[in-house]
Write a protein that binds this DNA or RNA. Structure first.
Lengths: 107, 107
DNA sequence: ATTATATATCGCAATATTACGATAATAAAG
DNA sequence: CTTTATTATCGTAATATTGCGATATATAAT
């Protein structure tokens, strides 16, 4: 059929999967790294940086926004994005808990 | 077009994305959790556990194997999988580095 | 208000993923 | 060697993702 049967799984499993999906594309990994490297946040020389089209970058940004990781503010002409640190730490915690629990129980 | 342009990104970015992709489905998260919960490893009552078809579970297991996270041994009739702890720790490290670096630099 | 620049959205094509039934392959038991 | 139980693979259908050109929207400057 081809539809993910999310109803078979619990909230935590679905949430982790949803967040992992955002990191499951190298462009989105690169975008997050690039945004974080700028002292003050950054707009979209991401297009130059990555070599992807503007529409494509905008779509990837939308995916990252969906899980609450981005905040955008206009600075002059430019819309500058930065990472929402609280949400970032929260998600880091999600992964850390997942990895640590399984790592302890396993084998 | 619809092809991920992996050549635009570096090895680390692609590796993280590839690993994240495996975690990007709740069934695979659930499978990993379930395998880790068994003292000795587990075979496939995963089908019962999840409610997915046997072929589907087998496919998900293959995805998890691709990134080196599973080791399988026959015990009697049953093929019992367990998590490769070394690889698990390695991947935990990958995510931890990624999250920590970005978390420090950002904003 | 108009213009210039930046970003988002739409529509489409190509490819990838998810799921499952059917079937093949594998390993223990008889 | 044959049978039985378990897991893997194949083929296929439905849906999702990726990417981009074209276009719409939004903000700042004039």
């Amino acid at each position: 059929m081809g539809v993910s049967k999310t109803q078979l799984f619990d909230t935590r499993q679905n949430e982790l999967a949803q967040v992992a999906r955002v990191l499951a594309h190298p462009a989105r990994v690169a975008i997050l790294q690039h945004i974080s490297r700028q002292d003050s946040c950054i707009c979209s020389d991401l297009v130059e940086e990555t070599g992807l089209a503007q529409a494509t970058i905008s779509q990837h940004l939308a995916e990252i926004k969906k899980i609450g990781l981005l905040r955008g503010d206009f600075q002059g002409r430019n819309l500058c994005y930065c990472i929402d640190k609280d949400r970032w730490d929260e998600i880091q915690g999600l992964f850390d808990t997942f990895f640590t629990r399984i790592g302890q129980q396993c084998c």
